[in-house]
Write a protein that binds this DNA or RNA. Structure first.
Length: 598
RNA sequence: GCGCCCGUAGCUCAGCUGGAUAGAGCAUCAGGCUUCGAACCUGAGGGUCGGGCGUUCGAAUCGCUCCGGGCGCACCA
């Protein structure tokens, strides 16, 4: 397909010297595979665009394709059989479809980054799964990717937690579990140390409102922690351990992995040199009240970046600065993506501004992918106030709903629970990636766990139907649709064996088959869009388009009918196989599994 | 107050480096299971692309402005 595009480009270049040739994709298969809009060329030539298209259509020749002028566009449309052959070769060949060979570019993706001693809420899902998808797609496209989890394991909040802990719940206290009135109503799973810590945190903030002097208590505890007080240190370590254990369980469930989990505490001893560099460059100025700031007006940011508090203590901006400098040295990266909510756009503008002034090397390498916050119908979620929706509750509810549907539609299904898990997760994760809105999303159960229409399960359903057909086809067809080794977070490409094509591809002449090929052809471009725009939306939407086109093909073109000639049957089976592989690969990049039956 | 973001069908959203008749899903209505999975498919209705002005051969897309909403604005992260 790429060669055809290149040939199209070459002939356009020779017909229109000195013109910039921009080739687009038409909106649908019946218009063709590639389109050249003639507006600019027409203007340069002083002609009518439609006329230019006509002239080009009658002059140029591309083997295996027809050139037609449709108004101001010159459309290249491959002959159905050529289109089928090119696409199936690409889809079933040795190179994973749409992937690129390693080219040494290093991309860092910072995502998830939960705070120690807090529970995963639905708000953490976006960063975690978008970050995962971006890491996966970049790896698929040949980048060297480092997946970074910048754990929130340092800061004043630990003073709060230490103070709360000392106040109400000593480590050894056996009454811990009974100290909280609402613990009896909650799920057994939440009777974990982490959940108790979370409750302590919430309680402290609640009581603090009427007793402001508690804040000093918290500050004092953080001071002790910073000064290396053994008790504070011991408790901090313990908080961190129980939190990480809990996080890992969730990451395992989501199929997400990291290459580094260096949290903010990791940069604790690296901030002094970072601050010194700021001083040496003359960027650090004393601001109001004795705090130290970096002014950024000259780079178009009116609000200066606060780097040191009046008491000399560091702030999260200092830690992010130290982290960026550390990463520059450690990874020598080409791009660093921060998948963090849109409430922090200013923070990252400031951070990037400071880095750019400190070292021009950083310019253009630092990128923030902001996303809208999830809020509840009654307002903003707040961990401090305790009005949050926990991620695991959402996942569990999704799985429960899917299980009910399985019982209704396919009660004989083996491994119901495992399949329900894949579908429930698929629904939630796919929904999350589908819209990359920067505006806030209002959480409702029915929205996030929708199972019909533009959803993960719709794509998974198309995949499962294909596997079902391939199984019925007998022989090794179904086997060919399975990965050659188990999938794991260490992989980006689903491992498939290269397959040879049937000799004849009649049977793919039908418009529905051609439309499916057209949508499959859009997948590589969608992956590049994901990489360029740093959002997973384009991939999710392309998978939907493929699944939709498959469903139409499936209803229009019988595959295993006895009246079909063996050639027609095999050609259609090959298309099914190619589609199944593409769908599984695409879902996998998003962190979604594709069950063979559902 | 200042800065950034958003406003597209009844609802939720795509489309935005300007370009073909503005697309999906949900909801509504009308059809489709004696052969491969109806978690599906086919069709219909539904739009001053928030309003206005401008740039352009051409604007949902770019600029200005107004209206409506969100977020941020130094010692939280």
């Amino acid at each position: 397909m790429e060669q055809v595009k290149a040939r199209f480009r070459t002939s356009l270049e020779s017909a229109l010297p000195d013109q910039e040739i921009l080739i687009e994709r038409p909106r649908s298969a019946d218009m063709g595979d590639f389109a050249f809009p003639c507006f600019r060329a027409a203007k340069a030539l002083g002609k009518n665009p439609a006329q230019v298209a006509q002239e080009l259509a009658s002059t140029l020749r591309i083997e295996g394709a027809e050139l037609a002028a449709t108004g101001p566009y010159l459309n290249l449309k491959l002959h159905p059989e050529v289109r089928a052959r090119l696409m199936l070769e690409a889809l079933l060949g040795a190179t994973p479809y749409g992937s690129a060979p390693a080219h040494g570019e290093t991309v860092l993706v910072e995502y998830s980054s939960p705070n120690i001693a807090k529970l995963f809420t639905i708000g953490h899902l976006r960063s975690t799964m978008i970050g995962h998808a971006l890491a996966q797609v970049n790896r698929y496209l040949g980048c060297q990717v480092q997946r970074l989890n910048h754990l929130g394991d340092w800061g004043t909040q630990f003073g709060t937690l230490l103070a709360a802990y000392k106040r109400w719940a000593e480590l050894e206290n056996p009454r811990l579990e009974n100290d909280f009135s609402w613990s009896d109503e909650i799920h057994e799973r939440r009777r974990t140390p982490l959940f108790r810590l979370f409750q302590l945190y919430v309680r402290f903030h609640q009581e603090e409102e009427s007793q402001p002097e508690m804040r000093d208590e918290a500050r004092a505890w953080f001071k002790r922690l910073e000064n290396g007080d053994p008790e504070a240190r011991r408790l901090w370590t313990w908080f961190r351990e129980v939190s990480l254990a809990e996080f890992q369980r969730i990451y395992d469930r989501l199929g997400v992995g990291f290459d580094a989990m260096d949290g903010e505490a990791f940069y604790e001893d690296k901030m002094a040199t970072a601050v010194q560099r700021l001083r040496d460059s003359g960027l650090l100025e004393e601001g109001e009240n004795g705090a130290f700031i970096v002014r950024l007006e000259d780079v178009g940011i009116q609000t200066p970046s606060l780097m040191l508090k009046a008491d000399g203590a560091t702030i999260y901006a200092t830690r992010d600065l130290a982290a960026a400098l550390y990463r520059q040295e450690t990874y020598a990266f080409d791009r660093c993506l921060y998948v963090v909510g849109s409430d922090q756009v200013l923070h990252f503008q400031q951070l990037f501004g400071v880095l750019g002034k400190l070292d021009p090397w950083f310019k253009g390498r630092m990128l923030h992918t902001p996303f809208g916050m999830i809020k509840l119908p009654e307002g903003k979620m707040s961990t401090r106030k305790g009005n949050v929706v926990f991620l695991e509750d959402v996942l569990d509810e999704a799985v429960t709903r899917v299980l009910a549907i399985i019982e209704e539609k396919n009660p004989e299904l083996p491994n119901k629970e495992a399949v329900a898990e894949m579908l429930g997760m698929g629904a939630v994760v796919f929904f999350d990636a589908l819209n990359d809105r920067v505006k806030p999303i209002t959480f409702t159960w029915d929205r996030i766990i929708a199972l019909d229409g533009d959803t993960g399960p719709y794509v998974q359903y198309a995949h499962a139907r294909i596997l079902s057909v391939l199984r019925k086809a007998g022989g090794t067809w179904a086997h060919k649709a399975r990965p050659t080794q188990p999938l794991s977070p260490a992989l980006a490409a689903v491992p498939y064996r290269a397959e040879s094509l049937p000799d004849a591809l009649d049977g793919l002449q039908d418009p529905a088959a051609q439309a499916l090929l057209f949508e499959l052809a859009g997948l590589p471009e969608a992956l590049r869009t994901v990489q360029r725009e740093n959002m997973a939306t384009a991939l999710a939407r392309q998978l939907l388009a493929i699944a939709r086109a498959f469903s139409a093909f499936y209803t229009n073109c019988p595959i295993l009918w006895t009246e079909n000639s063996p050639e027609v049957r095999d050609a259609r089976l090959a298309l099914c196989l190619a589609t199944a592989r593409a769908l599984r690969q695409g879902l996998f990049l998003m962190g979604i599994q594709a069950p063979e039956e559902m």
